[in-house]
Amino acid sequence: MIPAMASIILAGVSVEFPVFNAASRSLKNRVLSVATGGAIDRRVDGHVIVRGLEDVSFCVNEGDRIGLVGHNGSGKTTLLRVLSGIYRPTSGSAEIHGECVSLINISLGIDPEATGRENIRLRAAMMGMRPNELREQFDDIAEFTGLGDFLDMPFRTYSSGMQLRLAFSTSTAIRPEILVMDEWLSTGDEDFKHKADRRLREIVETTKILVLASHSRELLQKNCNRILWMDHGRVRMDGPTNEVLTAYFG
């Protein structure tokens, strides 16, 4: 099999959410006054819709390390979901070539009553790891957690640092072509932090495309070669890291 080039092409992408229970005007008004986010509209059939993204177009090629910036409600999460193939745009098109994994909530799928080992299995399945891949990697993951005999104890007995170690080790064992991350994962004590940072850097280097949403200027500067600035569901600026970051952070 010839390895295909990974790429993402968004053309005129808009995303509109129906809000079925916002029928009353008062509620609508409340939403209007609170939302810093997308535009709120009433469709012909009476449903209230929230426009999360509006006419977003850009191309991502292999080697792109994209940073997403924008205020709360500017459409970052919605965009991440479009890029991971969770939301299909309500208009426009999104072509995503390549296997995509999103590291958004690294604790998803964890069962507090199950042992560490069982949770590695559960979490790995959630990440889309095949059973045979998991078998190969299981020992590595278990070792990376550094939890030793605690792996046979229920997850709920772990300290929060230990819980993060387990979730992190499993979630980052996968090497996707396209990686979508909401915030950099920083974890645990100093000792593990170094290990974790090394592991993250390794992923960033091996994935063909990285999309990272973050509020940290330093982090974006270190990891990205291109920044998208989202504002009210639109791309406000798209360009080289330093240029956009200077405009955004001032």
């Binding site: 991971s84 969770i86 998803l108």
Partner: peptide
Amino acid sequence: EGIILQVRM
């Protein structure tokens, strides 16, 4: 919901 909105499956 949690799974559907977080991972593509």
